[in-house]
Amino acid sequence: MSHLVYRKERVDRGIKVRSDDIFILASLRDLSYATLPKTLAIVILLLFPLLKDLVGTYWESVLVTTIVISLLALSWDLLASAGLVSLGQALFFGVGSYLTGWLSRTFALTPIMSIPLATLVGALLTTLILYPVLRLRGIYFGLITFALPLLLSRVIEVTKILGGTEGLNKIPPLPNLTTELYILIVVLLVCIYAYRRLITSDYGLVLQAVRDNDRAVMAAGFDIQRLKAQAVFLAALPATFAGAFLTHHFQVVGMQSFALDYSILPLTSVIVGGAGTFFGSVLGAFIMIPLSEFLREFASLRVVIYSLLLLIFAIGLPEGIFHFIRRRYQQFERMTALEGESDKRGK
């Protein structure tokens, strides 16, 4: 028996098996196992704006950027669930930004009016812009979305509409940083909740089916062009909101709203955090954005280190940090004998 071969085996924690079922309510231990991670994250998030004196306004404004990118990443994740891989989240962001800027300048709307209006109209507008290219699949759709924000910013530059290269300034501000943060946090939480509900509903199942086998969905009697358009609209909402919100935060909107950053940063967040769960993409943003702020100390080496870290994450944990953490939380690894145990396992 001395030459037994061992291999690693992954086993669900008993508490996970139980909490997958109705028995979750049986004990406080099970209950906390299932709800603690979420509750903890929400509580920390909600407390953060109150710690202004402790963390300083600088990190509070980093949180603003983080949540904005989180919203763009969430939007990306929903699009990807329907098989639409976007490389141009800046399109939604920029359209939302410019709309709210134009609305508040032209009609003298307050942010309470212009942000929701820009969110809705912006989502509608981007859906219309993307409608003709929805039949493209995979990389072709991605390339078009990549090009569109760059195209729109050039159009603004050349035609000098919407302030041209100088943009629109003197856009009405939001009350104060704490209020801003709470609005953002609530929107973020509502968005995660709504998306997770959506994707597990029958409708969400159909959206995911479009990604996996669109012919089968057509054969089931769905207009997939329409489904994809609906997915774009639903996914555009948090992204156009993010654009509109940040415009009022900075009180100015310019061509940089269509900048590559707003396409790339959500993408890196999803790569690091892991796609498909919505939690993952948000977690990714909460890691990558503060990280890039830390890296400011390294000046021009910042991009190098950032890229290297991204590379390490992408190769080391291709499933994403969230999936990794969740698995660690739900399962443990142990060694199990490979030989001599075969008759036992054969049962």
Partner: peptide, 27 residues
């Protein structure tokens, strides 16, 4: 209604969930 020669179900879904997709179609 048609079937496909190569039936390609949604492999990562439970069998009965595969039917939810046509069952939630307009028809």
């Amino acid at each position: 209604t048609r079937s496909f020669q190569m039936s390609r179900p949604f492999y990562n879904l439970p069998v009965f969930k595969n039917l939810i997709i046509p069952l939630s179609s307009p028809r």
